[in-house]
């Protein structure tokens, strides 16, 4: 069994529909730990020891957050700045995270078509996510393609439900070892791997 740490960040979860729904997918999974950053650290005072211990105890690190301003809500950045210490997460002696995997699980208001050179946002999601990708690599982790929920502004409850099921499939697949990291790395989105994947 592989373990999954979800670094969840939403500053106003009470107003979110999709992210709240996605969290449902984690319920009852013994190998998943949801670390609700805004709830644990409303004052942004990250407990570094706690966070590092959590990282060490898990194989997958999933950052689940809305894709605000082409990035993550600020607590994710605060978390990175404080937790990923030199000499621990990176640097000559910083090998604590070696062999782990990292993935962004994001929700965006815009459709996927908006994230291309001719689109509204001019760049692709993967281009916007490069800081995360390089962070993972610098910390000796494997960066996995993101799981993306596009078009949340107009999403229907049915669509949301199917995303929840995909997400659940991903989590159980990773946790039970039926999905291996190298099966995902070739894709742009992890979604692409999941769509043909049978929903358990």
């Amino acid at each position: 069994m592989r373990t999954i740490l979800i670094l969840f960040a939403h500053p106003a979860l009470e107003k979110s529909q999709v992210n709240r729904a996605l969290l449902r997918a984690t319920e009852g999974l013994p190998f998943v730990t949801v670390n609700d950053l805004y709830e644990v650290y409303p004052d942004f005072e990250i407990d570094v020891d706690r966070e590092q211990a959590l990282l060490l105890a898990h194989d997958y690190v999933l950052m689940q957050h809305p894709f605000y301003w082409y990035s993550a809500p600020p607590i994710i950045k605060q978390w990175e700045d404080l937790v990923l210490e030199h000499g621990w997460a990176y640097g000559r002696t910083g090998k604590a995270l070696a062999g782990k995997n990292m993935m962004n699980v994001i929700t965006t208001g815009g459709q996927q078509t908006a994230y291309q050179p001719t689109g509204f946002n001019r760049f692709s999601i993967r281009e916007f996510l490069r800081p995360f990708e390089q962070t993972a690599v610098l910390c000796n982790m494997t960066y996995l393609p993101p799981f993306v929920v596009h078009g949340t502004h107009r999403i229907t409850p049915e669509q949301t439900d199917s995303y929840v099921e995909y997400y659940r499939a991903l989590l159980t697949g990773l946790g039970e070892g039926r999905i291996q990291p190298d099966q995902l790395t070739a894709f742009t989105y992890t979604n692409e791997y999941l769509i043909p994947f049978p929903i358990v």
């Binding site: 979860l13 644990v40 004052d43």
Partner: peptide
């Protein structure tokens, strides 16, 4: 049950 960040 109010979110911590909201309360803060």
């Amino acid at each position: 049950g109010v979110r911590a960040y909201h309360a803060q």
